[in-house]
Each structure stands twice: as C-alpha cells, then as structure tokens.
Simulated assay, not measured.
Amino acid sequence: MRAMIWTDSDCFSGTERHCLELSQGLEAIGVSTMVGSRKGSPLVTRAEHAGLRCVCLDAASAPFGAVREVARLLKMKKVDIIHAHNGVTTFLACLAAGRAGRGKVVATQHFIRPARQGRRGLARVFSEQVHRWVRSRVGHWIAISGAVASAMEARGDAAFGDIRIVMNGVAAPLEGEPASSEARQWIGFSPGVPLVLCPARLEPEKGHDVLLEALAVLRRETVDFQAVFMGGGSLHQTLERRIAVLGLGECVRLVGYQSRPDVWMRASDMVVLPSAEEPFGLVLPEAMSRGLPVVAAAAGGPLEIVTPGSGVLFRPGDAADLASRLRELIGSAPLRNRLGSGAAARWESHFNLERMAGEVASVYVEAGVRG
C-alpha cells in the first residue's frame, strides 16, 4: 500500500503537524508514505528531516503541474492512494486520479466550518458546484472528530455512511525532552509559581480574550500564577495592549512562535485551550502525552477529548467559569498531579499515534486499496 499525504500550505499549524505525524505513523505500520506540499514549506522541510519521501507540489500557483505530477506517480504505481487534507488538494487529487485512470482519493476534513463557507456570490456558487463534483469521486471522507462529522453531514458534504471519524493521535514525547525544572530554567520562569500555558495561534477564533479576562479575575484575587501565550498571529499587538489595560504585564507573556514547544510544555503545570469552537485541539493530546492536565471550552472536539479524570471543561466564552476552573488547578498541586496522571492514561489509550495510523490504514482498505 502506497499513500501520498497531500496538503498545500506554507505554515506549520495543526493540519501540517497532523500530516507529518500521520506519515510517520503509517510508515511505522508498513504503509509506504510520501508527503506532498509546497517546495520549501515547513512541512516538507520537517518531513525531509524526519527521513520521509517528499514531492514538491504547488497547488496554489501551479495547479495543472501538480495534477500532472500526481497523475504520473499514480500511473507509475509509485502511489495507490492520495490522501488530501484541504479543499484544493482534494479537488486536484480527483483530477489526477481521473487523468491517471487509477488510484483512490481519501479526504480528511479538519474544520467545522471550511473556507468555502465564507465565500459569497459567484465564488460561493462555484465552490459548491466543485464540491458536489468532488463528493462523487472521493472514496471516503475522514473527520477528525464527531463535531466535524456532524457539521459535514448537516452541510451535505458527504453521506454519513461515507464519513469515518478518526480522532487525531500524537507521537510519544521524545526521550531527550528536558525535565520540568530544567525547562523552567531554560525559559527563565520562577520555579515555584504555577505556570499556565496557552499554545494557540493569536487569532480571534482561539479565545485569548476570554482567557485574559479570567486571568484578570485571578490577579484581582491575588492568586499567584504565571501565564504564557505561545504562538504567532494577527492579534499580537492587540493582546499586548489588552494585557497592559488589565494590569497583567507582570504575570502574562506573549512569546510568539517557538521551535521547541515541548520545552514550554515541560515547564508548564497545565495547558489551556479557550477556543469556543475547536474542531479537535491537537495541543490537548500533546499536553496529555506529557502528563499535563488540560483546560478547554466545552464545545467541539475538546468535548470528545477531555474527561473528568484528565482535565476540566468550562462554559464556552464564560471568563468567570474559566477563572473558577483555573483557580482550583492553580491552588492544588495534588489535583494537578491526579488529573495529569489521568491525562497521560487517556492519551495512551485513545490518542496515541499507532491507533490513529491503524484506523487511517483501515479507511484506505475500505476505499479499495490493498496492501
């Protein structure tokens, strides 16, 4: 069985991390895997560094060239299945399979609201027509959570029987990751004060404003904590100003994109994902794999990830409720330890990489690809 994992992106966020780890997981269980993305993209760079085969395809600026190359790989039987991870690559994969006269297309939906829903007028009409054509040619659809699958069914993106829910899995932490105390020294934070980490892009949908309001409540109550917002994005300056207005400058830092997120997780006491509508929330199992308790809004993917024994949920958009949950965790090391142990156990049983890769390979077989 030979698969191409294809997405078109010049960033490295949740979808790209998923593609990289899925490729590694498939290779580990005997599925020959090739990664397709833009030349010089972070995904291709990291995939090559990991020893994965790559093919450079620019779906945005050279779509016809990408179709020709993928069709060539299919005809030469170097690839049996194209596993596409965004709308553009799914469309082009269907064209390539048609041109080659062989090969199957499987598509993963990573979002509750895909980009085409934001289009208007003729662009929206054209997008919907293209999607109907694509729907008739995709072998199976994968949704990364039940929330995504429900949204797909409600939109009529695919018949429910054609959707397979495969929750994301993440690899085990590397053995060389630093211990918590060492990581604290590396990043320059006080060792005795609980550290709250929010690893999310600084964009409106991620809910940083709600988290800041909750932290301001704790600050007024003189709760002792440190907080880090890790990630880049368009709201950096806006959030800096809000931190100053709320008087949080001494206890909240924006540290931007970090090439070693594992160090920041190891240094932290808990991870918070305040998004009100998160399709999955990959940072949650990443934190859980390191034995960290997680805090997330009770909506979307996190509802399927976080259990009472592995973390806590708060009402979406409710800063007071979030403050209450954080107050409990910050004030009780035994509670953090208990939930952290439960988080690690839940990652091991539900969100490990081997489980995800095996379920994806099963979808390939259902779509008609044999090993």
Rank of each mutant, 00 (worst) to 15 (best):
M1I: 00
M4N: 00
T7M: 08
D10Y: 05
F12G: 10
C19M: 09
S23A: 15
G25I: 02
E27V: 07
I29H: 14
V31M: 08
G36S: 12
L43E: 07
T45E: 06
R46M: 07
A47P: 00
E48S: 11
L52T: 06
A59W: 06
A59I: 03
A62H: 09
A62Y: 08
V70F: 03
A71P: 05
A71Q: 10
K78L: 06
I81M: 13
H85D: 08
V88L: 15
T89G: 05
T90I: 03
F91V: 14
A97F: 08
I112E: 14
Q117N: 12
A123W: 04
R124N: 13
H131K: 15
H131T: 11
R137K: 13
W141V: 10
V148L: 09
A149F: 12
A154F: 00
A154P: 00
R155L: 12
F160T: 15
R164N: 00
I165A: 01
V166Q: 05
M167G: 03
G169D: 01
P173N: 04
G176V: 07
S180T: 06
P199E: 01
P199D: 00
V210I: 15
L215Q: 10
E221T: 03
V223W: 07
F229L: 14
S234G: 03
T238G: 12
E240I: 13
L246S: 14
L248M: 15
G249H: 10
G249N: 10
C251L: 11
L254F: 13
Y257C: 07
R260W: 14
S268M: 13
S275A: 15
E278C: 12
F280L: 08
R290T: 08
R290Q: 13
P293Y: 08
A299R: 07
G300E: 04
E304M: 15
D318Q: 13
G331W: 09
A343D: 01
A344F: 09
F351Y: 11
E354P: 01
A357T: 11
A357P: 01
Y364E: 07
V365K: 15
A367C: 02
